[in-house]
Design a binder for these strands. Sequence first.
DNA 1: TCCGGCTATGACATCGGTGTCATGACATCG
DNA 2: CGATGTCATGACACCGATGTCATAGCCGGA
Lengths: 362, 362
Amino acid sequence: MSTIYDVARLAGVSPKTVSRVLNGDGPVGERTREVVEAAMRELGYVRSNAARMMRAQKSGIVGLITGAISTKNQPSTQQGLPDLYIVQGIQRALDASGMTLMIADTGGRQDRVPKLIDTFLSHRVEGLIYVAEYHQPVDLPPVPEDTPLVLANCYDDRGTPAVLPDDRRLQADLVRRLIGAGHRRIAMLALRPDMAAGRLRPLGYRDALAETGIAFDPALLAHVDFDQPETGPQLLWDTIDRLLRLDAPPTVLCCGNDQMALMVYGILRSMGRRVPDEIGVAGFDNYRAIAETLYPPLTTVELPYNAMGVRAGERLLQLISGEGRDDHRPVLVAGPVHWRGSVNELRTATVVSLMTQREETK
Amino acid sequence: MSTIYDVARLAGVSPKTVSRVLNGDGPVGERTREVVEAAMRELGYVRSNAARMMRAQKSGIVGLITGAISTKNQPSTQQGLPDLYIVQGIQRALDASGMTLMIADTGGRQDRVPKLIDTFLSHRVEGLIYVAEYHQPVDLPPVPEDTPLVLANCYDDRGTPAVLPDDRRLQADLVRRLIGAGHRRIAMLALRPDMAAGRLRPLGYRDALAETGIAFDPALLAHVDFDQPETGPQLLWDTIDRLLRLDAPPTVLCCGNDQMALMVYGILRSMGRRVPDEIGVAGFDNYRAIAETLYPPLTTVELPYNAMGVRAGERLLQLISGEGRDDHRPVLVAGPVHWRGSVNELRTATVVSLMTQREETK
DNA sequence: TCCGGCTATGACATCGGTGTCATGACATCG
DNA sequence: CGATGTCATGACACCGATGTCATAGCCGGA
């Protein structure tokens, strides 16, 4: 691969002049510029970042680590889809600033993280992002103080800047919308309470109830470990069966995520209950391959992974530029409710009055 | 960040000795090594890849480009899931060789590819991989001859090394297994014929029929553009309706992919047909979030994206080392059939005789 | 005892850009 | 007309690691 020296020789100028043409600093004669540019084209010259970076002491590289770090065993669920969207968002944010993204995967082995960080440091990354597969606490090995770090979809107890899904608010938004549609008996099939989402979403559920003056009924809230290969479906079946036998059964089931909703569809069908006429179903995530393909399409709330990535990227750029280094508050990201055919609108009149009421309370 | 000079000064030796400790070339005294290592620890020294690479003329970096490049408009389908698995596989392959992966996304804009390639070249990547979202032809801008390029999940007409899913064989394996289970009237709901998968999978379907001496019935093969938001479900409904009204209706429906199978479940349910007792359903992809969660779980064939990534990574490493540069044959990757509850085994006796027969013909 | 060979170490040049400073040719101003 | 300023350009050092070559000390064999 050719160098500025080759270009300089071919153009009959000094290397420094070529450098000036490249960077547009310092003055260069009209004629000279043309000659140099022609020489660069002829040689197919591409600047070496390594050399440039040695002087500049700036790499223009950001390191990204994905993969399991949590000390707990994996909750098996989704197959790492969120990561991808978050990574795409990060790329989008960084792209605008000319940074290049270098990524590495732990392959699920926490012990490899220090080595990955070392590799990144040897490339003199200007910042690091760690992306988790699902909302969780993590415990990362220490990074040098002068290298900014942002956590995406996870958090630690050291105040490292984090970007997180606002599970509580998202669930509240969804339930609020269900109430707006006239539903009063809303059941919630939550995820395992040892997952952040399993704790925060029920809180949002209760927020929405409290706000609209509906009493919380403990019989309507259950945590279901639905994705255990053997026991999961049975457990879910039993839980739904119990709910439907209540004196005042729910008119809609809020599922812990869209995948659970998919399973719930199958169970309700086997029970001979029609969705949405006999009972409504709502999901969480807006996992489109499921939500849009199910019949009827699934009402759900979008967990905006892409936007989270963008926010994480922006936060990191901010830190790199030196701003907000002592702001330790996490960035919470919410998304829209997608209202589809899996939940009926009940008593339209009531809906209107309720929505009006909400407007007034603002 | 500290340098070998800092380390050398602190340890009271020359920079070159520090370099020797780092790389383990040249002899170093026992005592000296200890002193140097202590100094490195104290300073938190990390070697600069930029400097190292200037001499070595080797970056240890591989560039990866993802995103839409095809000139055609996007077939909307899956949300870029395959990419992720392929990328993971690539990482796994490269990781073993100590290469670092740098990735960039086109964000769906083909015109940005040349710029991305330039960025990678400026980092002096030792090789490039382009990953497509689904099996398709692509037309990449030229890359310098001495930089190896591997295409994953796509191919071009210039003989660039490619790693592709063996759609034809995968479909044949699945259909063969269905025939082994006693099915004779097998319908195929194929993807659009302008997609590679939409052409190759029907070929595999026919391969399996021909092999087992079952006549191909054109009435049983249909291409369905199922993921059009409006017309898709209706079209799929009509097609299934037509199939079920045939004089000899199919006993199993082979769907173009798992997502279509999900929609087919909903349609069959609405038609009042039970799966698998009245009709079997098979998918394609082993998109686990769907295949394992559906009730009954979906029989499907695994399109091994992860393995494709590994193969692509290995192929690239091979090219980088200079081997197989003039082998232009694509690498085809197949995967296992996952037999789950969505298809019944018919007439067990026949199954045994058929399988025996297959063994014999080998 | 002397020399070849090995070990341990350092001086120095080099990779490819870029920051600093110097230089020569003109243009401008008092 | 000479002092000063601007433009266009080049010489040179430097970033941090490493390859090449040199050197000093030591051991063993002739």
